[in-house]
Structures are given as C-alpha cells and as structure tokens.
Amino acid sequence: MPTDDIATLAIYSDHLSAAAVTAALGVEPTSIHEIGDARRRSRSRRAGSHSPTQYTHSLWEHTVRGDPAHAGVADAAGSTSIRLLVDVFREKQEQLEKLRADYELRLWWSAISSSTQAPFVFDAELIRGLAIIGCDLYGTAYLEADGIDAVL
C-alpha cells in the first residue's frame, strides 16, 4: 500500500529568471534559485572533483506532499500529491503554455510503498489534469523496508 508521495512542478531555464515564472503564474514557489546564485560545494571522493560554485540555470519549483491521513479513497493509491499539484495549476494552462516556449517544465513524482505490489493509480480525471500542465512526468516508486527506503 502506498504510504507517502511527493510531487514537484520544476521549471528550468539556462537564460531566463525564475522570478519571471512567479510573475507569470501568480503562484509562489516552494524553492527557487537564479542563474549565478551561489551553490553549496559538494565534496567528491575523487581528488580534485567538485561541483560548480554557481548555478548555470534558474530553477522554480512548487512542491506538494501527499498526506496519507487526509487521503480519500481515490487518493489512497499514491497519487495524493499529484492531485494537489494539479489543483494548484488547473486554471494556469494558458500561462504554462506561454512559459513552455522559453522554459523547460518537468513534473517529478515519487511515492513510498509498504508493499512490493503497491497499486499506484492515476485515474482518467487525474490524467486529464496532468494534460493541462502538459509536461513530462518523471516518477519513482520506493519500497519501505524496515524503515529504510530501497529503490524498487
């Protein structure tokens, strides 16, 4: 059975600002960074290897986490977060279409299951809502095993 899920609409550009996305959509992001913003350095195990010190692209993200305690019967199949995200952007189809000309849009979704046969269900209504957002969906399902999430 699905126990947790999270969905993010991520909007990227290598030459335009993330702040312009907020202005175009009228939706506040849950996280944002602009081209040139300082980036935390990561230490690699290989000598001399490190990540760049500044972002080379802008990123605007709006993230929603499913709440299993408040999920209805239809949402009990690991799609609560995506349904909530679709609700945020349902009336933004025109604005998203304009952004698509200059930005890359991606929908990220992941869910955790307590069973190896979890029924992740995306019903027709949800699929119609995803079509309004109109971008590729990247999804991952994880198996919850003894408190450690292992990739299926």
Rank of each mutant, 00 (worst) to 15 (best):
L59H: 04
W60L: 02
E61W: 04
E61F: 11
T63K: 11
R65W: 02
D67N: 11
D67F: 10
D67H: 07
D67P: 02
D67I: 04
P68M: 06
P68W: 11
A69G: 09
A69P: 02
A69N: 12
A69D: 08
V73R: 07
A74W: 07
A74V: 06
A74I: 14
D75P: 06
D75I: 15
D75Q: 15
D75R: 01
D75A: 15
A76R: 07
A76T: 12
G78A: 10
G78I: 05
S79H: 01
S79R: 08
T80A: 10
T80Y: 05
I82T: 14
R83T: 09
R83I: 08
L84F: 15
L84Q: 14
L85Q: 12
L85D: 02
V86M: 10
V86R: 10
V86L: 13
V86I: 09
F89K: 07
F89W: 05
R90P: 14
R90N: 09
E91G: 12
E91I: 04
Q93L: 12
Q93C: 03
Q93D: 03
Q93S: 04
E94I: 14
Q95F: 08
Q95L: 01
Q95D: 06
Q95Y: 08
Q95P: 01
Q95K: 07
Q95W: 03
Q95I: 03
L96S: 05
K98P: 01
K98G: 08
L99R: 03
L99P: 00
L99E: 03
R100H: 09
R100M: 08
R100F: 09
R100K: 15
A101C: 04
A101I: 00
A101K: 05
A101F: 04
D102P: 00
Y103G: 11
E104T: 08
L105P: 14
R106P: 00
L107F: 00
L107M: 11
L107Y: 02
W108C: 12
W108F: 12
W108E: 07
W109L: 02
